[in-house]
């Protein structure tokens, strides 16, 4: 065959969908999770348009227009909700909201420190010897 066929488009849509799935499962930023969902929606839209093309039927394209509408509504509401959540915790981390767990389970915490937040190595403390020299004022500047 000399041009990509329906299954090729479907395969591409599947890859987009699955990458969106991975993003939704792995990333913790609320906005990124939402973008991942939109990525999955793009994959589905691609399916619709591909079927529309290869079955010679415009209904698939019409449906994608409705998907665009719903996606816009979804984005507006999601952003409003994200803003509301951000106001309460000053963070976009989805893991901060785990109040729906069972009462007797402990909250899941991150124990591995972030690179920038490593506890700094303690400075060597030198024993006091002799009389401390009088320091000039400007030596306080780093």
């Amino acid at each position: 065959m000399n041009s990509p066929d329906l299954p090729h488009y479907l395969a591409c849509a599947a890859v987009l969908f699955v990458l969106g799935l991975v993003g939704f499962l792995a990333r913790r930023n609320l906005i990124l999770m939402f973008l991942s969902v939109e990525l999955m929606v793009q994959g589905v839209a691609l399916n619709f348009v591909a079927f529309a093309r290869f079955r010679g039927n415009l209904d698939g394209q019409s449906f994608v227009l409705f998907m665009l509408t719903v996606a816009a509504c979804e984005a507006a509401l999601a952003l409003a909700l994200i803003l509301a959540l951000y106001r309460t915790q000053a963070s976009l981390d989805v893991s901060l909201w785990q109040n729906l767990r069972e009462d007797d389970l402990d909250a899941t915490e991150d124990d591995e420190p972030l690179p920038g937040m490593m506890p700094e190595a303690p400075l060597p403390s030198l024993p006091v010897a002799g009389i401390a020299p009088a320091r000039p004022e400007e030596s306080n500047r780093v």
Binding site: F24, L25, V94, E102, A107
Partner: peptide, 17 residues
Amino acid sequence: FRSAQNGLLQFYALAMA
């Protein structure tokens, strides 16, 4: 199975997947 209910959204999504 109670411990599956850990309140983390993404675990639930993983179960769905």
